Simulated assay, not measured.
Amino acid sequence: MTGRDGIFAGEDPFQLAQSWLDEAAKTEVNDANAIALATVDADGLPDVRTVLLKAIEADAFVFYTNYESAKGRQLTAHPQAAFVMHWKSLRRQIRVRGHVAPESAAASDAYFATRALQSRIGAWASQQSRPLESREVLMERVATFGAEFGENPPRPEYWGGFRITPLQIEFWADGAFRLHDRFQWARESLGAPWNVKRLYP
């Protein structure tokens, strides 16, 4: 663990990740909490897309989506995932690999209630990842659900959070001449102690 000081210091990887995200929020132009989320489909073919990380908790990373979307179906069938969060302004990134489980209904309800009204209506209107005949059809669905629910749409049952509980978290910072700094936190199972090691760049 030689040299794990400065921006790498700390004994809790979740707190360290939160501190990096808080710093990035001051410098990134848009969406400092964007992550590239990787899953696999039924044939084992990798899939990746950008989503917004909504919480770093004591032992998990949380994001929200349509459970019937491609990523929702993939995560339900194969509840493991990886993501990378990269900040060009800081020249840093965090990589995470681990197990996935649905967020509780209560937590999903609470987060859904904080979203903008049009985003809540959009969750009802969008049949995410499925074919769409035209933009006009989508906007008609938005108008229909907006009229039905008014100012207080409930959370759809098919929409909610996922929790990624990691087995590995890697913190990376850019170095001169590509001699980067990398520290990997790894554990054999959930709840096991972390082992931290420096990696070659």
Rank of each mutant, 00 (worst) to 15 (best):
R4N: 04
F8W: 10
D12S: 05
P13F: 14
F14E: 03
L16N: 01
S19E: 08
L21M: 02
A25K: 15
T27L: 13
N30C: 06
A32H: 13
A36R: 15
V40L: 10
V40F: 09
A42L: 14
G44A: 12
L45I: 14
P46V: 09
K54N: 12
F61L: 10
F63C: 14
F63N: 09
K71H: 08
R73K: 14
Q80L: 06
W87Y: 09
S89F: 05
S89C: 02
S89M: 08
R95E: 07
V96Y: 13
V100E: 05
V100D: 03
A101N: 11
E103V: 09
S104W: 07
A105D: 11
A105F: 08
A106L: 10
A107K: 11
Y111M: 09
A116W: 00
Q127F: 12
F145C: 01
F145M: 02
E148M: 06
F149P: 00
F149Q: 06
F149G: 05
R155F: 01
E157N: 03
E157M: 04
T165V: 06
I169P: 00
F171T: 01
D174C: 01
F177E: 14
R178F: 05
H180L: 02
Q184I: 05
E188I: 02
L190E: 12
L190F: 05
R198W: 12
Y200I: 09
P201L: 13
